[in-house]
Every structure is written in C-alpha cells, then in structure tokens.
Amino acid sequence: MTDTLRSRTAALRDTLERQFQTHTGQLIELTAYSREPNHGGHDPDTLRALMETARQGIADSAGALRRMSEGTYGRCESCGSEIPVARLEIRPSARYCVPCQARQRG
C-alpha cells in the first residue's frame, strides 16, 4: 500500500461505510415497497432493478471493506498493480485498475 493510499484509507473507509449504510437503507425501503399493493409507486420491473442495484452496492462496499481488513485494498485483483488513489476516491469499491476493468467489460 502506497503512503498516499495509507493516508487516505480512513477517509475511504468512512465513505465505504456510508455507502454500505445508504444501500442497506435503500434495500430495506424498497423491500417494504415491494410488499405494498401499489409497490410504493414503482412498477414491479423498476422496483426489482432498484433492489438489485442496492444489493450490488451493499456487496461492493462490503467487499472493499473486507479487502481493507485483509490488507489487499488498493491492489488490482487481476494484475496485482496498485489502483491509483484518484480512482479509489472516485470509486472506493474498485477491484480493478482501469486497464483491467476495461478488459473485464470487453
């Protein structure tokens, strides 16, 4: 872990914890809507998509927090190189560097 990443880890952890809480709250709210007759004003397909997005956000945040505790946070899961701090500040749950992320999508 680079010195820059080490100095930013506390702030990134706070961000990830907030994201985890936000997505968890969203999923709880959306789950409640799914049980209502009018689905909280959402059509069922939109509600399912929103719930899946919240679930993915929970998984992404939890995974990044786990990597922090394991000491692997900030390393690309594909090539092992350092993920730039600027990328982690934009996407704290990033698992890949930009070139490897592009290959994952390709």
Rank of each mutant, 00 (worst) to 15 (best):
G106W: 12
S69E: 15
E29D: 14
E17N: 11
T9R: 12
T2Q: 08
S7Y: 00
I90K: 06
T22F: 13
R103T: 05
M1V: 04
R55L: 07
G25N: 11
G106M: 10
A54G: 03
R6P: 01
L12R: 04
T46K: 09
R103M: 12
R13P: 06
S69G: 12
M51P: 01
A32I: 03
R13W: 11
S69H: 15
L30H: 08
M68V: 14
H23V: 00
L27S: 02
P84A: 14
C100M: 04
C76V: 08
H39S: 11
E70F: 09
E82S: 11
G41I: 03
A11H: 11
T9Q: 11
C97Y: 13
A11E: 15
E52G: 06
Y73C: 02
A59W: 06
E77C: 00
T22N: 05
E70R: 14
E36S: 11
R8F: 04
E52K: 03
L30T: 02
A11S: 15
H23S: 10
G63T: 03
G63R: 06
C76R: 05
A94Q: 02
P44C: 07
G106S: 14
L16P: 08
D60W: 07
Q26V: 00
A54I: 09
L12F: 13
T72M: 04
T9P: 01
T4N: 06
R75Y: 15
G106N: 10
S69A: 15
C76N: 12
G80V: 04
S34I: 00
V98K: 10
P37H: 10
Q104S: 10
M1S: 08
L12T: 02
T46E: 15
R105C: 00
E52A: 15
L12M: 03
R91H: 03
F20P: 01
S81M: 05
D14K: 03
C76H: 12
P37V: 07
T53V: 04
G74H: 05
C100G: 07
E89H: 05
Y96D: 05
E89Q: 15
T4F: 03
R18D: 12
G63E: 08
Q101E: 14
P99T: 04
Y96T: 02
G71K: 02
G63H: 05
Y96Q: 03
R55W: 05
D60L: 09
R91C: 01
G106Y: 10
T72P: 07
E77F: 10
I83Y: 13
R55S: 11
A94F: 08
C100P: 05
T15Y: 04
L12N: 04
A32H: 10
A10L: 11
